[in-house]
């Protein structure tokens, strides 16, 4: 059974979401504040974490930051009640995989959860290791090495980079990347993909510009000279 963790101080909303998600076949664990949320997230093995930003004690951003120091592989979906676009970007920069602004349509939440879970690699197919522009992708271990150095990537960052390496230097459109990494089409004016790319660039020590922005079209990898 797929296990989800919901960290939100809004008890009424949490219990209603529990009903909906349980009906969808997920097992939901609730955490009413940041401290408990962090503990549960680190102790239990969850497939996905739903994280509210405004929390008593440590807030969603701090929680995410501390969570990402130890646990990279679990997808995190931020639920932002704040309308500030800065908040959304900040969450993504700290390693969230996607965000959903409150109030949201619960069907949209279910769709996002499904999308994030779906792209967890299917182990029955044995994908071959890929290599391009100094990146070495090992899909079995969910590992990417850049110039022989292991990159510590979140699941979304891993999927984006894998899609780029699969492109072998061809331009991969933002929509393709969004479908590959977030399991959904990019909404108009959505900048989350740019933030993820910016995050990946920060983790590459030498020549991060080898991930090239092709204005208005997408991204591609540049083979090093």
């Amino acid at each position: 059974m797929t296990k989800l963790l919901l960290v939100d101080d809004d008890a009424e909303l949490s219990s209603m979401l529990e009903q909906i998600l349980t009906k969808e076949g997920y097992q939901l664990t609730l955490a009413p504040d940041g401290e408990i949320g962090l503990q549960r997230a680190l102790s239990g093995s969850f497939d996905l974490i739903l994280l509210d930003v405004m929390l008593p004690g440590i807030d969603g951003f701090q929680l995410l930051q501390r969570l990402r120091q130890q646990l990279r592989s679990t997808p995190v979906l931020m639920l932002t009640a704040r309308g500030d676009d800065d908040d959304r970007v900040q969450g993504l920069e700290l390693g969230a995989d996607d965000y959903l602004p409150k109030p949201f349509n619960p069907r949209e939440l279910v769709a996002r959860v499904k999308a994030l879970l779906r792209r967890t690699p299917n182990t029955s197919v044995r994908p071959e290791p890929l290599e391009y522009a100094g990146f070495h992708v090992n899909p079995l271990q969910n590992e990417v090495r850049c110039d022989e150095q292991l990159l510590e990537l979140t699941p979304t960052e891993f999927d984006i980079l894998r899609a780029l390496v699969q492109g072998k230097g061809q331009v991969v459109s933002k929509d393709q990347l969004s479908v590959a990494a977030l399991g959904r089409q990019l909404a108009p004016f959505d900048r989350s993909l740019d933030v993820h790319i910016s995050n990946i660039r920060k983790k590459i020590e030498h020549n991060p510009e080898r991930i090239q922005t092709v204005r208005g079209r997408g991204y591609r990898l540049l083979q090093l000279a």
């Binding site: 009424e12 909303l13 209603m16 109030p103 349509n105």
Partner: peptide
């Protein structure tokens, strides 16, 4: 937004 979110789910 919080009450609105609850209303929507309810």
């Amino acid at each position: 937004r919080s009450p609105l979110a609850r209303m929507q789910v309810a």
